[in-house]
C-alpha cells in the first residue's frame, strides 16, 4: 500500500455530526468478498434518490468536488457498525484524509489500517477551512494543515503517524515480535 505524507487537494464538505457507517456504506453493499469496488456505494443513502439517480446538490455529486482527496465532517465520524467497508469506500472514492472533530474508535483504526489519515481538528479550525474554500495541504511530516493564510497543527499518535509515513504492513510489524508471542503462548496459551 502507498504511504501517506503530504496531501494537497480541495475539500468536500459534509459538515454533520454522527455520520454513521450505515450512511457511509449501507448493508446491501456488504455482501462482497473483496476489498475494492465500493466507490459507488459511499454515502449511498444521501447520494442517490429513490430511483437510484444521483442527487445533484449532494456534495459528492457536485462537479466542483470531483477529484477531491479530503473530506471535512463533524463530530463522532464513523460511529456505529465496525464495517471496514466504510474505510474502503472512502478510499475507493479517493478520500485520503478525513478531517473531523472526533471519530468512533473502531473507524479510526480501520481508516489508519488502510494507510489513510483520520485527522482531528476543532470546530473553529474546520469552519475556517470551509470558509476559505481553497486548496488544503495536509502535511503529516510536520503535522500541519495549511490553506491560504491559515495554518493549523494537529496531533496524532506517533506510532500511527510513522505507520502512514512508512506505508507499513501491519502483520510484518507484529511478526518482528514473534519470539515474545511464542513465549506468551508457552506460558499462558497452550
Amino acid at each position: 500500500m502507498d504511504k501517506l505524507d503530504i496531501v494537497k487537494s480541495k475539500a468536500t464538505v459534509i459538515f454533520k455530526d454522527n455520520i454513521d457507517t450505515d450512511i457511509l456504506i449501507p448493508k446491501n453493499y456488504l455482501k462482497s468478498t473483496k476489498r475494492t469496488g465500493f466507490a459507488d456505494a459511499l454515502f449511498a443513502p444521501w447520494r442517490y434518490d429513490e430511483t437510484g439517480k444521483p442527487i445533484e446538490d449532494f456534495p459528492l455529486n457536485q462537479t466542483a468536488n470531483q477529484g477531491n482527496q479530503i473530506l471535512i465532517a463533524g463530530e463522532n465520524f464513523g460511529c456505529g457498525s465496525s464495517r471496514e467497508h466504510a474505510a474502503w469506500a472512502l478510499q475507493d472514492f479517493g478520500f485520503k484524509v478525513v478531517i473531523a472533530g472526533s471519530y468512533s474508535p473502531i473507524f479510526y483504526m480501520n481508516y489508519l489500517n488502510n494507510l489513510k489519515l483520520p485527522l482531528i481538528l476543532g470546530r473553529a479550525e474546520r469552519e475556517a477551512l470551509i470558509e476559505q474554500n481553497s486548496e488544503i495541504t495536509v502535511n503529516l511530516i510536520d503535522k500541519t494543515v495549511t490553506a491560504g493564510n491559515l495554518c493549523f497543527s494537529f496531533a496524532i499518535e506517533n506510532v500511527y503517524r510513522e505507520k502512514l509515513l512508512k506505508g507499513q504492513d501491519g502483520i510484518e510489524e507484529i511478526l518482528e515480535y514473534i519470539d515474545l508471542i511464542e513465549e506468551h503462548e508457552r506460558k499462558y496459551a497452550k
Binding site: M109, N110, G170
Partner: peptide
Amino acid sequence: FGIGTSEVEDVFATQCMWQTKP
C-alpha cells in the same frame, strides 16, 4: 472489543493486534 477486517487479518496471522490503551 469490536475490530475491523484488517485487524481480523492481523489476529488470524499472529493472534495479536496493536491497540492504544484507553
